[in-house]
Simulated scan of single mutants.
Amino acid sequence: MIDQPTLHRGTGDVAGDVYLPADGGTTFWGRLPCAADAPVLTVDPGTAVTIDTISHEGILEDQGRDPRAFFTAHGVEPEQVLDDAIEIAASDHPHTMAVDGPHVVTGPIAVRGARRGDLLKITVLDTTRRVPYGVVSNRHNKGALPGEFPPDGVTFSAFCGVEEIDGTPYGTMPLVPGGEPAVAFGLDPFLGIMGVATAGDERLHSVPPGPHGGNIDISLTTVGSSMYIPVQADGALAYVGDPHFAMGDGEVALTALEASLRATVRLDVVAREDASEMFGELVTPLVETSEFLVPTGLDEDLDVAMRNCVRAAIGVLGARYGMHPQQALAYLSAATDFDISQVVDIVKGVHAKIRTADFTRLGARP
């Protein structure tokens, strides 16, 4: 593994205007914040917040709920195991493996002026690795091949190190369990969970994504991207979590390279009227990158998720460029990739990559 400083709580650089650590008072484990939850931080729109996130891998009950023991068994030095991960695992933080989700989320953060019907815009400004390692797991007969993997029903966790090759960091893993690293793949860190609180007083399970965002798991949400999420409660009550160093679209094992990040995000509010003109009526979150508009479709049935995504893409093209629905469908068929975000989170996801440059070459209305 590369030699890098371990970003324990309160150490290292803070790129944002304000810093939010991860501890027992600023995190939820396995559940998502709702409107009844008090914010742990309140900020003005436009504020950049640096947030510590904790990966669930290494702290879960089927891994011993002892991250120091789990990671040192894989050759990690004790001082490289995050203090806040140890604290969460050892705390009386309520968590039941078979009932709650696995994810630790940091928040909620209230954004002044955000109202139901607005959009919360979360722009990712920075993602810094807190540790030089992570884990990919397959468990409970879940993932893309339930009933086939894990073959013995026992959780399989593949440990991955981070190595530098010709000045570039890569994730590494062996060809066989317990072997020496033999495969090196690119890293592109992102937050699998970005969301807003749901209305009411019920804390949703952290696994299935929805109109609130949550475990949306779109690997395009890297530095420079923005996610727009329909606000459901005053203040939006934003949260982030499920940090990844890398993920292939589909996330077929159940998890990808799960590993803790220090993320800096800017929180902005888009008023309902402006949101409608920009994107139409969003039912599920939309991602924007320097290259693409990325509407999403969600459903437990992947075919329905695909249809929902196509409808969302047609709506975005109509709102943004005044494109007739039949013309929009034709364009999408000719020029837009529809990718599977993930198939492992109960509610499956599809996202469309609409290339914005296609609408500037001939002067389409922006």
Results as ranks from 00 to 15, higher is better:
Ile59Gly: 15
Ala256Leu: 13
Gly179Lys: 12
His351Pro: 12
Pro45His: 06
Val154Glu: 01
Asp92Glu: 04
Leu191Cys: 11
Phe279Asp: 01
Ile216Pro: 10
Arg320Cys: 15
Val270Ala: 03
Thr96Met: 00
Arg272Asn: 07
Thr123Val: 04
Cys309Gly: 14
Pro366Ala: 00
Pro169Ile: 08
Thr168Met: 13
Pro102Asp: 06
Arg272His: 13
Ser157Asn: 03
Ala110Lys: 09
Phe71Met: 05
Glu148Ala: 08
Ala313Cys: 09
Asp62Pro: 00
Ile193Trp: 04
Leu82Arg: 12
Glu57Lys: 03
Val231Tyr: 04
Leu254Gly: 03
Thr26Phe: 04
Ala352His: 15
Gly25Arg: 11
Asp201Glu: 10
Leu282Trp: 02
Asp52Gln: 08
Val344Asp: 06
Ala364Trp: 06
Asp268Val: 00
Leu120Met: 06
Ile54Asn: 07
Leu254Thr: 10
Cys160Ser: 04
Gly224Lys: 03
Leu60His: 09
Asn308Tyr: 08
Ala85Thr: 05
Ala334Trp: 06
Gln232Gly: 02
Met323Tyr: 04
Thr172Lys: 04
Leu293Pro: 12
Met173Gly: 11
Ile2Leu: 13
Val40Asp: 12
Ala36Phe: 01
Leu20Ile: 05
Ile109Ala: 08
Tyr331Met: 05
Leu267Gly: 01
Ala313Pro: 11
Thr289Ser: 14
Pro230Ala: 13
Pro45Lys: 07
Met97Gly: 01
Ala90Asp: 01
Gly363Phe: 05
Ile51Gly: 06
Pro33Trp: 03
Ala89Arg: 05
Arg311Leu: 08
Val252Met: 08
Thr26Gln: 14
Val99Asp: 02
